[in-house]
């Protein structure tokens, strides 16, 4: 039984990875180009006038956040478009008729999202080498935070896809929720620059914890305590995981 589920898991995962690698021009290249532009504009052109942020050059400061942003956007985008596509053209039924537990379906899609998030993350990191000379304080923390964050947003993408009824619905959340939260999540500035009130508001933004713990992994310093940040991320993962499983179990959006 376990072997059967393992094969099913590998099948879904492989299919998910093939999907985004086959269309790499649409999936891998755009975030790389975008991040290169950020580095050129904010890092080199404007950054020189900004001077230091939190004791480091501006371009060094934004680098972890830009990588994190790419990971978040891409792990989310992968699952939301793949799952919604499967629902729309009904090939999700291929998994529904087969003896695949919902947990395996969930893990398969999440692994696909993580794979895309991390692939883009690596590509973007390589590009940033052209613009900044960074060192890594703790590779383990960098990897752990990247992994957890991509898991979290892969599941968020799945929930979006389950409820989506049109292609519009799969771009509304990224545009109106994800992007603003990311931009306000401390990628471009240290929240210490904000007035006390807005600092408190920012603490309600989950992305702040990911960006800062990720920055900690690179620089060994950040606005937020690492343990707090990891606990926040893990609790989000636990909640989203449970929601995903319940929705799949109920067949919301995929079974009449």
């Amino acid at each position: 039984m376990l072997r059967q589920f393992w094969i099913a898991y590998l099948t879904i995962t492989r299919k998910e990875i093939m999907r985004f690698t086959r269309i790499w021009i649409q999936t891998i290249i755009p975030p790389v180009v975008m991040v290169a532009l950020y580095f050129i504009i904010f890092g080199n052109l404007i950054g020189q006038r900004i001077g230091e942020m939190d004791g480091m050059s501006y371009v060094d400061f934004i680098m972890p956040g830009l990588v994190m942003m790419s990971i978040i956007t891409n792990s989310y985008a992968n699952v939301v478009s793949s799952f919604y596509g499967a629902k729309y053209s009904r090939h999700i039924e291929e998994m529904q008729v087969a003896p695949v537990p919902n947990l395996v379906i969930l893990l398969g899609f999440v692994t696909g999202g993580v794979a895309r998030g991390l692939s883009v993350g690596v590509a973007v990191t390589l590009v940033s080498l052209l613009f900044t000379e960074f060192s890594v304080h703790s590779p383990a923390i960098v990897l752990l935070v990247a992994l957890l964050t991509s898991c979290l947003f892969a599941m968020a993408g799945l929930i979006n896809a389950i409820f989506a009824n049109s292609f519009d619905d799969i771009s509304i959340v990224p545009t109106f929720v994800l992007t603003p939260l990311t931009y306000l999540g401390g990628i471009f500035y240290s929240i210490k620059l904000l007035p006390e009130f807005w600092q408190q508001v920012s603490l309600g933004n989950p992305i702040l914890y990911m960006v800062n713990s990720f920055r900690f992994g690179f620089r060994g310093a950040s606005d937020i305590d690492l343990v707090t940040a990891l606990l926040v991320i893990l609790s989000f993962i636990a909640v989203l995981f449970a929601v995903c499983l319940v929705l799949l179990e109920r067949g919301t959006g995929i079974r009449q």
Binding site: Q4, F5, I7, A8, I12, A86, S89, E94, A98
Partner: peptide, 27 residues
């Protein structure tokens, strides 16, 4: 099923092989 429900962009062989995978059939 009555209506086509495969991923029309996937190659024919992949569709069938993947289906076997969902049932746990070794590659």
């Amino acid at each position: 099923p009555q209506e086509f429900n495969f991923n029309t962009f996937e190659p024919v062989e992949e569709i069938v092989v993947n289906q076997a995978g969902y049932y746990g059939v070794p590659a």
